[in-house]
Amino acid sequence: MYSLVTRLPAPLSRLVTRASVRRAGDVCPLPESMPELLSLAEGDREQLAASVAAHLRRGGVAALPTDTVYGLAALAQDAGAVARLYTIKRRCELKPIAICVSRPEEIGRWAHVTAPEALLHDLLPGPVTLVFRRTPALNGELNPHTELVGVRVPDHPFLLDLVSRCGGPLALTSANLSGRPSPLRADEFSELHSQLACVVDGGTLGDSPLARLGSTVVDLSQAGTFHIVRAGSAEWATRRVLEDRYGWKERL
């Protein structure tokens, strides 16, 4: 679930002296050099999702809360937006970026699903990234150096609503420069704000030592076996589903 806040964290509040946080649906545009700053606490969720979707459809990159850490999102089918996402994050193009869809049933369009539908629903929505072989429908400019793709269905109503409005998957990665800790507050990646189309503030995400670990990434591309690519915040729960409930074996 997303968290509501009544005010922005202090560092982000200082940015607001130059460009006020406004409710989605207001018509006054911000200067082109500044991102649109939006708060989940102050705006109607549907209007806010519509506003962010408009930025994404114009090729922009948005920062937003997820069910794990803050993420950077762009339209996965827009090659220019994907390139912009890599540039902002200063990410090596050899490192793949996951995609985000709104329902487990949508995964099959973008990836060759090797797991039963019941297994998908036992893991998703949730803090898990499932890795499968990509289909030709997915933008070839996204992760061009691998036949695999990670797919997320976050347990976050705002984000799922946003993806539904975009009509296709989002490329989604943590909102930090490569090599730095994943952020739990919007002010923790303030050095990136000026390069973004909009920043959605959902307050502080998580308060446990596991919070910054992000999603658990598990490769299910070979039916009946799995490989934990990244332990993340839900490794134990993921193993329990795969091993105990479905009898899948771990491959090293």
Rank of each mutant, 00 (worst) to 15 (best):
V151F: 02
V151M: 03
R152Q: 02
R152I: 09
R152V: 05
R152Y: 04
V153G: 01
P154W: 09
P154Y: 06
P154T: 10
D155T: 10
H156K: 04
P157A: 12
P157T: 11
P157Y: 01
F158Q: 01
F158Y: 11
F158K: 01
L159K: 01
L159H: 03
L160G: 02
L160W: 00
D161S: 11
D161T: 12
V163M: 04
S164L: 05
S164Y: 02
S164W: 00
R165G: 00
R165T: 04
R165Q: 11
C166N: 07
G167A: 06
G167N: 03
G167I: 12
G167D: 06
G167L: 09
G168E: 15
P169E: 06
P169F: 00
L170C: 00
L170F: 04
L170P: 07
L170T: 07
L170H: 02
A171K: 02
A171Y: 05
A171M: 02
T173Y: 04
T173P: 01
S174V: 11
A175H: 09
A175T: 10
A175N: 06
N176F: 06
N176A: 08
L177I: 15
S178T: 15
S178G: 02
G179L: 09
G179F: 09
G179R: 09
G179D: 09
G179C: 06
R180K: 14
P181I: 12
S182T: 11
S182W: 05
S182D: 11
S182V: 08
L184K: 06
L184W: 02
L184A: 09
R185S: 10
R185G: 00
A186D: 12
E188L: 09
F189C: 13
S190C: 11
S190H: 13
S190N: 08
S190D: 13
E191T: 13
L192R: 07
L192M: 14
H193F: 15
H193Q: 06
H193L: 15
H193M: 13
S194R: 15
S194K: 12
S194G: 11
S194E: 15
Q195V: 02
Q195E: 15
L196G: 01
L196C: 06
A197K: 10
